[in-house]
């Protein structure tokens, strides 16, 4: 059983990702890989949420929630890199 909001989330992510990518690739950002990983895992989680409504609901549900946990770790890693770099720059 799928929900409309989950479809909207996935569609919005798919539509905005190319635009986000065009700006993101030009960024000189510490922890860029971490952010990329976090964003990618969120996308996968969105896909799993939608898939959950059609097939293997327990598996895809679990994957969705694991995905959010991994994305949290990715964003935390990216944020840490930014914090360290900004403090290093302030010391310089």
């Amino acid at each position: 059983m799928f929900e409309e909001s989950e479809i909207v989330d996935l569609l919005m992510a798919l539509l905005l990702t190319p635009i986000i990518w065009l700006s993101f690739r030009t960024l000189k950002l510490p922890g860029k890989t971490w952010f990329l990983f976090g964003y990618f895992v969120i996308m996968v989680a969105y896909a799993c949420t939608v898939a959950e409504g059609y097939v293997l609901p327990d598996l895809f549900n679990a994957l969705e929630h694991i995905g959010y946990a991994l994305a949290g770790a990715g964003f935390a890693g990216g944020a840490w890199s930014m914090l360290v770099e900004s403090r290093r720059a302030a010391q310089r």
Partner: peptide
């Protein structure tokens, strides 16, 4: 996983 998610995004928010 939900608990870890809260911790991960919470830590990111704090940083």
């Amino acid at each position: 996983a939900d608990g870890l998610s809260v911790i991960g995004f919470g830590v990111a928010l704090l940083f």
